[in-house]
Simulated scan of single mutants.
Amino acid sequence: MFRSLELSRMAQAMATHAAKRQSVISQNVAHADTPGYRAQDVHPFSDVYGTTPDRLTLRTTHEGHLPGRAAPGFAAGLRAVDRSAATGNVNGNSVSLENEMVQAATTRLSYETALGVYSSLRAITRAARGG
């Protein structure tokens, strides 16, 4: 039971990571013609999963307040990438539309994998409940 909860959290974090990465990729595509724009990407999921602190630092305004707990997940920081080595953009832009499309397809597969895991866990939970 507890193992499936961790798998559920991991699937949720993986889907969130894929959504964040897709957003960054779309931003790169939108700036494909912007002179000097540096393409960005999020760190790989395997590097960032579980990196959020277990404890939040919350401001307590009353002595009876309880400390909060962070949900397990990831901290997806951005990093600059240079995918334009093959295209050789003369305006200093590091975006390659072909590479961004490949990254978008890979990210879509990651998102679908996370949803597949989550869906399977939901089906197992329903079967265990007898429904």
Rank of each mutant, 00 (worst) to 15 (best):
S8I: 05
R9E: 12
M10R: 12
M10A: 13
M10P: 12
A13E: 03
A13S: 13
A15K: 03
T16H: 04
H17I: 10
A19E: 13
R21G: 07
R21H: 01
R21P: 06
S23D: 10
S26P: 04
V29P: 04
A30G: 11
D33E: 09
D33L: 00
P35R: 05
Y37K: 10
Y37I: 11
R38P: 11
A39D: 04
Q40P: 00
Q40G: 02
Q40N: 06
H43F: 10
H43R: 15
P44C: 07
P44Y: 04
F45V: 09
D47N: 08
P53I: 06
D54F: 02
D54A: 14
L56D: 12
T57K: 14
R59D: 08
T61D: 15
T61M: 14
H62W: 00
H62F: 08
E63K: 05
E63L: 07
G64Q: 09
P72L: 06
P72S: 00
F74S: 05
F74W: 06
A76H: 02
A76G: 10
G77H: 10
L78F: 05
R79Q: 05
R79F: 01
V81N: 00
V81L: 01
R83K: 11
R83N: 11
S84R: 06
S84V: 14
A85G: 04
A86H: 12
T87D: 07
N89M: 06
N89A: 11
N89R: 15
V90T: 15
V90Q: 03
V90S: 03
N91C: 05
N91H: 09
S96G: 09
E98K: 04
E98I: 08
E98N: 03
E100H: 05
M101D: 03
Q103H: 00
Q103D: 13
Q103V: 04
A104S: 13
A105L: 14
A105G: 14
S110R: 12
T113N: 12
T113K: 04
A114I: 05
G116I: 07
G116K: 01
Y118G: 11
S120M: 12
R122C: 07
I124W: 09
I124M: 14
I124Q: 15
I124L: 13
T125P: 10
R126A: 09
R126P: 03
